[in-house]
Design a protein around this nucleic acid. Structure first.
Length: 461
RNA sequence: GGCCCGUUCGUCUAGAGGCCUAGGACACCACCCUCUCAAGGUGGCGGCACGGGUUCGAAUCCCGUACGGGCUACCA
């Protein structure tokens, strides 16, 4: 029986967690869990000095947010590549001893100078037959064999590389430190990684890694290169130009479930319906079904998913989920009363305070345009006066408030939409917002009347 | 430049030679519902990059072209 598969996930610690990385992590996670295998987290930086503990913690936190929990039995790690430097160097020496690698004392400048003479590009095996031993200022290079290298890729099929196009690449720098390509393979071998699922950009590196695997005496793992995520210009998502930090979406009130679900629809399809819980995605995901072409990370569609997920919550869940975005001084009970009415109106949780702030502020922030257009109507001021008067004595529940206004509007021959506009602006300062009568009920008679009278005064003055 | 990968509505996708008059979702538009805005409902717009093959039959297989992207460090 074949051993349980081991999927390695190797984000580089750069201070944030990339949405593209998140998707790759989810792919690996689904595969590891549904196969009874293991998701192996490896922090990849060969230089220990660059490993920032808080960055690693950030990655672990972000993974946990999207459901990839370090406490899960299928989760292993984090492993640190830099901690394994001795093994990397040991492997390099073995490659030298077995003739798979050789030392070279040429500097980059010297190589460039030679190339200028010969018209060659890259490193063309200048020191291959010089039988140099180890020494200061010498790099160890892999002796790329003649022939070709065939990479079996679960997503893309067989890809053949002509070895003549692959230069004798460096394994050990002149200062003796291992290069990532080597470190990677050594760690993969040591951690018994069976599947390498990563972004397409790594495909050109794969023949090199595969050659190292074989030179080290091991069969390469199963490769799978998934398409990259791109921006509207169809360029790979980059930190400089694009919003790529998963943490940022979390902080803006995108739900983890929505993000996970959306990410999984990029390059793959869960089937007849695209809004599906992870419990259905996990067993359904297969690498064979992953697309070959890059996918645009569409924040608008993410927003649509997020709205769906917000609406799927119970009101209690929704209130609890909003809490981090609600200012500390706001009355929680009052927010809970209005929550039901704003739930279907949100794209992100961060939008919540903006649509109900009028309930909590000392005075509404009057939008001048809303005010001008609303009270530009000839009936508006008179009607507001009538409504204010009636609201002094009518029952204070949204149904009574509504019928009271309906009784008053008939003489003006307008519909409720126009009739309520003046009160809405007086109360909220805007023409758009949650249902007016429910908002009035939550706000209470005293404060509502105060605002309506203030509006009348402003109209008079 | 070299090597590699890719190409179905604007976007994400379904599609494994006949179920395709190419299906769904987001976006957009219209209408319905409606106290505003949303949500919800109904409908609309819109696509197989191009050219050759193979086949009775091609979005699907093959070749070429075009276009796009990725990689090309003693970074990871």
């Amino acid at each position: 029986m074949a051993p349980a598969p081991r999927y390695r996930f190797a984000p580089s610690p750069t201070g944030f967690f990339h949405v593209g990385g998140a998707r790759t992590a989810l792919f690996n996670w689904a595969l590891a869990r549904s196969s009874g295998g293991t998701f192996v987290l490896r922090i990849e930086d060969t230089d220990d000095a660059r490993n920032q503990p808080e960055w690693t913690q950030g990655i672990i936190d972000s993974l946990a947010w999207i459901g990839i929990s370090a406490g899960d039995p299928h989760f292993e790690g984090p492993h640190f590549q830099s901690a394994n430097a001795n093994a990397h160097i040991g492997a390099a020496i073995r490659l030298f001893e077995t003739g798979h690698a050789y030392f070279c004392d040429l500097t980059s400048e010297q190589i460039k100078a030679r190339n200028d003479e010969t018209g060659a590009t890259g490193y063309v095996g200048y020191s291959r037959e010089r039988n140099l031993g180890p020494g200061p200022d010498r790099v160890l290079r892999f002796r790329v064999p003649a022939g070709s290298t065939l990479v079996h890729d679960l997503v893309r099929g067989d890809v053949e590389f002509d070895n003549a196009t692959i230069e004798d690449f460096v394994l050990l720098r002149s200062n003796g430190t291992p290069v990532f390509l080597l470190a990677n393979v050594v760690d993969d071998v040591e951690m018994a990684i069976s599947h390498v699922v990563r972004a397409e950009e790594h495909l050109p590196n794969t023949p090199k890694q595969q050659m190292i695997w074989r030179a080290l005496g091991h069969e390469p793992p199963v490769w799978a290169h998934v398409p990259v995520l791109v921006n509207e210009q169809r360029k790979k998502l980059s930190k400089r130009r694009d919003k790529v930090a998963l943490e940022q979406y979390r902080d803006e009130g995108y739900l983890a479930d929505a993000m996970v679900n959306y990410l999984m629809t990029l390059g793959w399809s869960p089937g007849d319906h695209e809004i599906v819980p992870w419990s259905q995605i996990e067993p359904a995901f297969r690498l064979q079904d992953v697309n070959l072409s890059p996918a645009f990370f569409d924040v608008k569609k993410l927003g649509a998913f997020n709205g769906e997920y917000i609406r799927m919550m119970s009101v209690d869940q929704f209130v609890a989920a909003c809490d981090p975005w609600i200012p500390a001084e706001w009355d929680r009970a009052k927010f809970a009363e209005i929550a039901l009415h704003i739930q279907p109106r949100l794209v992100t949780l961060a939008d919540a305070p903006g649509v109900v702030d009028f309930l909590f502020l000392a005075d509404p922030v009057i939008d001048q345009d809303s005010w001008d257009t609303t009270f530009g109507a000839d009936y508006a001021t008179a009607l507001l006066r009538q409504v204010t008067e009636a609201y002094e004595t009518c029952a204070w529940d949204h149904l009574s408030l509504k019928t009271t206004m309906e009784d008053l509007m008939v003489s003006h021959e307008i519909k409720l939409g126009k009739a309520s506009a003046g009160t809405r602006v007086a109360i909220t300062g805007r023409t758009v917002g949650p249902p007016l009568f429910e908002a009035l009920e939550v706000m209470g008679r005293d404060e509502s009347l105060r605002r309506m009278r203030a509006a009348l005064q402003r109209l008079a003055g």
